[in-house]
C-alpha cells in the first residue's frame, strides 16, 4: 500500500497498462516533452522516458488528434488521449460523438473503438473557457461510457478498467483533486489521496459508491462535489441529521441500483452538481429517480447546482457560482425539515 494523489495514481495506472499491453499508448498535447510538464497536470510526467515512442505529442489540434486516436483504436490500438482542459472537448466532439460513439452501431456491430479520453474540468480561477463542467455534454450520447473520478483509488482503478474496455470511455477529472505538485499545484486543492494497493485492481465503470452511510437523506455528487457532500454530511451529523453520501462516479450509465437502494432507505434526495443547473446531469438523475423509485420519495428531489451563467473569473463570483458546503448543508436542512 502507498498513499497517492490522483495524478500519481493515474500515472502509475497508465504505466502499468502500457507495460501489460503493447497496444496501449498515450496521445495529446505537451504530454511527453523532455523538460516539460507531463501534460497540463503532470499525469504523464516521466512516461516518455519509460516508454519511448508510445507517448505521442501532437500539434495543438484537438479535433485532429482525437480523430487520430479513434482511427488507431479501430485498428487494434488502445489509445489514452487527453485534452489539457475539458473545454477543448468541443473541438474534438465531432470525432467523439459522430465517430467514436456511433461507428459500432452504424457498422452493424463490427467496429470496435477502445478509446480512453481523459479531461480535467472544474472552476479554478481561470475564467470562462478553462473551467466548464463538460460531463453533461457527453452523458446523453449513446455509445459512450462516462465516468468521473474523485479519489486516487478510483482514478487508477477506473483508468485501468477503461483501457481494458472495448468501448470509448470518457474519464472526467477535477483540477482541484489532482494533488499535482510543484509549479502545477492548484491553489484551493482538496485532498483526494487514497491508499493504493500494490496489486493490480480495477474499479467497474458502471457502479456508484456509498461514501458515508446515513438514514435521513441521500446526497448525490461526483468529483469535487462528492468531497463537498461528505464535508456537509459531517457538519449535519453534529446537528443530528444522518446523511448518506453517494459518489455517483459512473455518469453513463447511471447506477440506479445503488442510488435506488439509498433512496428507498432515506426517502429524501439532494443532488449536487458543479455546472449550471439547467440541462445538467442532475436533471437526468432526478428524472431517473422518479422513474426508478418515486414511490419511496417523501419529498421532491432537491438540486444544488451552479448558476446558469458562464464560469466567472473573480474569486468572489467564482465561489458564488460553484456549490459549496454551506449551501449543501442549507439545502439538506430545508429538505429534512420539510
Amino acid at each position: 500500500m502507498k498513499r497517492q494523489g490522483i495524478a500519481e495514481a493515474l500515472r502509475d495506472g497508465i504505466a502499468e497498462e502500457m507495460t501489460r499491453d503493447p497496444s496501449v499508448f498515450c496521445i495529446g498535447e505537451d504530454i511527453g516533452v523532455p523538460g516539460g510538464w507531463g501534460g497540463a497536470f503532470t499525469v504523464t510526467l516521466g512516461l516518455a522516458e519509460k516508454f519511448p515512442g508510445r507517448i505521442i505529442d501532437t500539434p495543438i489540434a484537438e479535433l485532429g488528434f482525437t480523430g487520430v486516436a479513434v482511427g488507431a483504436a479501430m485498428m487494434g490500438m488502445r489509445p489514452i488521449a487527453d485534452v489539457q482542459y475539458g473545454d477543448f472537448l468541443f473541438l474534438a466532439s465531432d470525432q467523439l460523438i459522430n465517430n467514436a460513439a456511433k461507428l459500432r452501431y452504424m457498422s452493424g456491430g463490427t467496429v470496435k473503438v477502445p478509446l480512453v479520453m481523459r479531461a480535467p474540468i472544474g472552476a479554478t480561477g481561470r475564467g470562462s473557457q478553462h473551467a466548464q463542467s463538460m460531463e453533461r455534454y457527453f452523458t446523453g450520447v449513446p455509445g459512450l461510457k462516462v465516468v468521473a473520478v474523485s479519489t486516487a483509488y478510483d482514478a487508477k482503478g477506473m483508468l485501468k478498467a477503461a483501457v481494458r474496455d472495448d468501448n470509448p470511455v470518457m474519464i472526467f477529472e477535477h483540477k482541484l483533486l489532482y494533488g499535482s505538485k510543484g509549479a502545477r499545484a492548484e491553489p484551493g486543492a482538496v485532498d483526494a489521496t487514497s491508499e493504493i494497493p500494490d496489486d493490480d485492481y480495477v474499479v467497474p465503470l458502471d457502479r456508484a459508491v456509498v461514501r458515508r452511510e446515513g438514514t435521513h437523506v441521500t446526497i448525490l455528487g461526483w468529483l469535487l462535489m462528492a468531497h463537498f457532500a461528505q464535508a456537509a454530511a459531517a457538519q449535519l451529523a453534529a446537528e443530528g441529521i444522518e446523511a448518506e453520501v453517494i459518489d455517483v462516479r459512473s455518469l453513463s450509465p447511471i447506477d440506479y441500483e445503488t442510488i435506488g437502494a439509498s433512496v428507498r432507505k432515506t426517502g429524501r434526495v439532494v443532488i449536487v452538481e458543479e455546472g449550471p443547473k439547467t440541462g445538467g446531469v442532475s436533471a437526468e438523475i432526478a428524472a431517473g429517480i422518479m422513474e426508478h423509485c418515486a414511490d419511496s420519495l417523501q419529498a421532491p428531489v432537491t438540486r444544488v447546482a451552479s448558476a446558469d451563467v458562464p464560469v466567472p473569473f473573480t474569486p468572489i463570483l467564482e465561489n458564488a457560482y460553484r456549490p459549496d458546503v454551506p449551501r449543501i448543508v442549507a439545502a439538506v436542512r430545508q429538505l429534512v425539515g420539510s
Binding site: 485532429g64 482525437t66 480523430g67 482511427g71 479501430m74 470525432q95 465517430n99 461507428l103 457498422s107
Partner: peptide
C-alpha cells in the same frame, strides 16, 4: 470503414489508422 458522412471527418481517422499500422 463505414462511410464517414461528416465532411473531412474521415481524414484524421485515416491518419490514426495509418498511425496504428506504423506503431
Amino acid at each position: 470503414v463505414p462511410g464517414i458522412a461528416i465532411v473531412a471527418g474521415g481524414i484524421p481517422l485515416a491518419a490514426g489508422m495509418a498511425l496504428a499500422f506504423k506503431l
